[in-house]
Design a protein around this nucleic acid. Sequence first.
DNA 1: TAGGCGTGGAG
DNA 2: TCTCCAAGCCT
Length: 312
Amino acid sequence: MSDILPANPAQRAARIEFHQLFNWFASAERDLPWRAGDVTPWQILVSEFMLQQTPVARVLPIWPDWVARWPTPSATAAASQADVLRAWGKLGYPRRAKRLHECATVIARDFADVVPDDVDVLQQLPGIGSYTARAVASFAYRQAVPVVDTNVRRVVARAVHGQPDPGAPSTKRDLADVEALLPNADQAPRFSAALMELGAIVCTARSPRCDGCPLRHSCSWRLAGSPPGTGPKRPAQRYAGTDRQVRGRLLDVLRDNAVAVTRADLDLAWPADAVQRERALTSLLGDGLVEQLADGRFALPGQDRNDSTASR
DNA sequence: TAGGCGTGGAG
DNA sequence: TCTCCAAGCCT
């Protein structure tokens, strides 16, 4: 059927076997709750925030409770930052939670509580970059825009370009690559979802399951004999002992305490290195993820100061 | 544009 | 144990 070929005949040279891909997706698609039919654009946006650099398995237990508690931008905006940061829990990169809250505030205030459907408008919102803007436009609003995440980049690198791994990210080139593959309007969102799914569960970074790949007969990388990659692009990002770990420890203390804590409480979270601890705390204050009260204690921003020593 | 930013599971 | 990596964004 021509309707699932690339819209431009010249682009058909790009070797993605659409029928195979769609057929595979029809049976292999994971039953993820944010893909259900009654999910709103805002709730899809929430899932995209959570999925930024965080595996599906970790988002799965958080998202349903979150969207039940705060179903709309205005409901989210009405919550305190402290409540949002606690609900975010240990998903990681808590700045995302703060930006999600800011994003909700802007949408409630400036967009009548309706998530914008324009990629360029979306991308101006806090915490929304190229990928997230396009994911919302495509998955929530069914637009035929390219959606490029790390999975798509990897699948295209292999299936189309015959490379074991994607090159350095280049938004412009990556978008052009996927644009050239995109089927016509109706099929585009499902195509993007299928490509991402393929990258997530078959064409994986570490040990691709090529035997079960719907593109195995046309994949350029496969046809080239699956030459090995050259290792990670970005040098191993260590975690143990870094400021990020210290920030995580400090924030963990604050999440666990309903009342403001003292500096001594924070010292216990990272006793070994006072200099590093102070640096981490300063950066958290700078990021607006922690605030210091007039009495010197520390709390999550907007937290109730329901403590005996609080003057009021 | 390179590097900072959490966390934990898999190999 | 240790390394890699997971639906990125921001400066």
